[in-house]
């Protein structure tokens, strides 16, 4: 690459510049704008924000109990869904990684398939299962477990189920990737040397699977935190999550500065997990190379 002609050098610069410029204009710049508007005040004009700079929106957000509860509820629901995804996803990924190659590729296909079907339609499918006259209630009544339909739709529990269902593949795939690489002889050796199955799991399998666990948990938690569709369709009107609050603040209250501030606060909460995830991925890429 040392003997580059002038023309080639220009060509090289062009290949860097085009995506760079695109990302700057359509990704970095919008953030600076959001930051600027979050510091403005709402006014009755087009566009509906002032040119002034103040921290009023953030002070309001920090002092308003309703927003604190909403942020907290989002964290709790996203965390609960992450835990259930891990409890379900770990044995599944383990089972897939340990099956014969032919079976394994089919099982993986079944994990990836829902990814390619519309997210919205998959969430919608749960509405048909969970509503008062839905499949779950009909089944429970038919079995004689209950005689009145249970209110499952429009509750936090429905959101929790929807989040777990939608993001389970995000947990399974990175877990599978690490478990598949793992050397099973290590577990055998530990068992031969007299370790119990539990000890072998906690001392060998779990530490080796940790990068996959970290990646999976973050890939579930981060998008679940900002989820809009699931709380809207499955949750009740009072069961708000922060993504929905942001949307409503923007569209129904037309308070652009406050919506921007809500977005910035969400980002502040997510910045630690996002940085953690990117470092984890970089380390993984290095160790794989």
């Amino acid at each position: 690459m040392e003997l580059l002609g002038r023309r080639d050098l220009w060509w090289r610069r062009l290949i860097v510049a085009i995506p760079y410029l695109w990302l700057f204009v359509f990704f970095a710049l919008p953030f600076l704008i959001i930051l600027k508007i979050s510091l403005a005040d709402p006014i009755m004009a087009r566009p509906p924000f002032s040119e002034t700079v103040s921290a009023d929106n953030f002070i309001f957000l920090l002092n308003d109990k309703l927003y604190a509860i909403t942020y907290l509820r989002s964290i709790v629901l996203a965390a609960a869904a992450t835990v259930l995804c891990l409890l379900l996803g770990f044995p599944m990924a383990y089972g897939i990684a340990r099956s014969t190659p032919a079976v394994r590729s089919f099982l993986l296909l079944l994990i990836v398939l829902p990814f390619w079907i519309s997210f919205l339609l998959r969430v919608y499918a749960w509405m048909g299962l969970l509503n008062n006259y839905g499949v779950v209630n009909n089944l429970l009544i038919w079995l004689g477990v209950i005689d009145q339909p249970l209110q499952i739709m429009y509750t936090d529990f429905a959101i929790f189920l929807g989040l777990t269902y939608s993001y389970l593949p995000f947990m399974i795939l990175p877990l599978y990737a690490t478990l598949e690489r793992m050397d099973l002889d290590l577990v055998d050796a530990a068992l031969d040397l007299g370790a119990s199955r539990t000890a072998a799991f906690w001392d060998i399998t779990w530490p080796l699977a940790r990068p996959g666990v970290v990646a999976g948990c973050l890939l579930v938690f981060i998008p679940a935190m900002g989820e809009y569709v699931i709380p809207y369709l499955l949750g009740g009107p009072e069961a708000m999550m922060i993504g929905r609050v942001l949307f409503d603040e923007f569209y129904f209250n037309r308070d652009w500065p406050l919506a921007s501030a809500v977005a910035i606060m969400l980002l502040v909460i997510l910045v630690v997990p996002i940085v953690f995830l990117q470092r984890n991925q970089a380390r993984e890429a290095e160790s794989a190379a």
Binding site: V16, P19, Y20, L23, F24, V25, F26, F27, A28, L29, P30, F31, I33, I34, I37, P47, L218, L219, I222, P223, M225, G226, E227, Y228, G243, L246, F247, F250, W256, A259, S260, A263, L266, L267, L270, I274, L277, Q278
Partner: peptide, 26 residues
């Protein structure tokens, strides 16, 4: 460059959507 490239992968959709709309309005 690599930061800007990989961030959209993990950015919550509501934030991406809002920030782009505000860009277009501006």
């Amino acid at each position: 460059f690599s930061g800007m490239l990989t961030s959209p992968l993990v950015m919550p959709e509501v934030i991406t959507g809002l920030s782009l709309l505000l860009l277009f309005v501006t």
